[in-house]
Design a protein around this nucleic acid. Sequence first.
DNA 1: ATGATTTAATCAAACGATTGATTAAATTTG
DNA 2: CAAATTTAATCAATCGTTTGATTAAATCAT
Lengths: 247, 247
Amino acid sequence: MTSAASAREAPKKTLPGTQSQSDKPNGPEATRAALIAAALDLFGARGFEATSTREIAGRAGANIASIAYHFGGKEGLRQACAEAVRTQLGAIAAAAFADTKAEIEAAPDPEMAASLLEAIMGRFIRTALVSPQTQRFVPFVLREISGPSPVLELLYREVMEPTHKRLCMLWGAATGQPGESENVRLSVFALVGQAIYFRIGSEIVTRRMQWKNYTAVEADRIAQTVCANLRASIANQNATLTRKEKP
Amino acid sequence: MTSAASAREAPKKTLPGTQSQSDKPNGPEATRAALIAAALDLFGARGFEATSTREIAGRAGANIASIAYHFGGKEGLRQACAEAVRTQLGAIAAAAFADTKAEIEAAPDPEMAASLLEAIMGRFIRTALVSPQTQRFVPFVLREISGPSPVLELLYREVMEPTHKRLCMLWGAATGQPGESENVRLSVFALVGQAIYFRIGSEIVTRRMQWKNYTAVEADRIAQTVCANLRASIANQNATLTRKEKP
DNA sequence: ATGATTTAATCAAACGATTGATTAAATTTG
DNA sequence: CAAATTTAATCAATCGTTTGATTAAATCAT
């Protein structure tokens, strides 16, 4: 075997015995977690290709070979990061939707649906802009969604699409439109797009706003702005639709 | 000199004689242009570090050393790309503002300002989402604004900030607020954020909308959605402010 | 239980391949 | 010819990966 032909198969996790040693401060699970945390930081800050395995191992306090051992290679570590993100991102989405599951499924009236949307978006923005654990993996996600990739596929299917669909249900209920109509889907994208942009373009926003960075105060102002737009857009679609229905 | 200590000074552009040979199919200017075009594509598609100089030269039909000769190195090529983007991005912004300079400076009334904003955003969205030359450098820009960088600095100062300020003037005129107030600046960011997200998240949007890609038709629907939000938001801020002023 | 054996995990060291950069000669251009 | 430009070849450095040795814990045999 001279050159490539490698891409060796996954190292098969295969925990020994039980998982009793998983949470030991120096156990193998701690090494895995440290490698993923370091890789998330570095992949997000500098990009996948720009990050060397030595740097990851160094920051994680692990040996270089441990990457190949635990994840099969650098690419495997990237996918492990993606799954870690899926878990955390799902948790954030779940937190944003907290205590709303029942109301959503109860076919809420328009005003109720709008209030739920407002509460959910407000919580999402405040979390996504300032939470340290969020700031850790958001840059990683932003780099992964730039183009088609297995990571994007996973995150879209497991987190983004389900979340978007739930927001569409609410938007539809708030404006009296079918939740899967083209207009609703686009409106929800325009809504979350505002929130996402304030995260993506933070370097630009903070310059223009003369902010040092995002704290709870700035996140609050942004949430107010987006939620005001949300209210205005829903009111506008309600007015337009009723005008169409009974001219 | 053992390790680095390099970062050699710029190779001094030094155009030969006149620019009479610039447009010759094999002239030196053609090599420069081909290298920048190839680098823009590859930097955007895969990132700066993930792109090798050999690949750039290969796609441009030039030799590897020509990068060092014309731009002083890979980093110089990146900055040349940034300046090329500044030119094209400035042209797009100028086109979006076309024929509005006079009206803007004429202190337009609220309805006129709102109409101008709508026209400008509509043109910007339709151009940014489908124009082939735009699609060429937008991914490059998105990668550069992820973190602080000289490229971001240039683009922000030369294009983004001036454009944002002009939009803020219009928004202020449309809603009767000071053009540099915090609320106006944030509202304009929320507005352009929608447009930017539809470009950044095209992989996600097209999946959810079951579109193959963006054509003039899809860009039109997106522009309609964003412009409707723009109208609704301005109307809402007008109503809120007048209610505050005379209770 | 206790000694023998296997397994999981980590380490330092080194691998071949590729990177950006550099050189000097060859070629083109005016 | 002389200057500008392109070419092929080579450089040291770094890349991701692999190797063989080592340690400690788990499993087995008796």
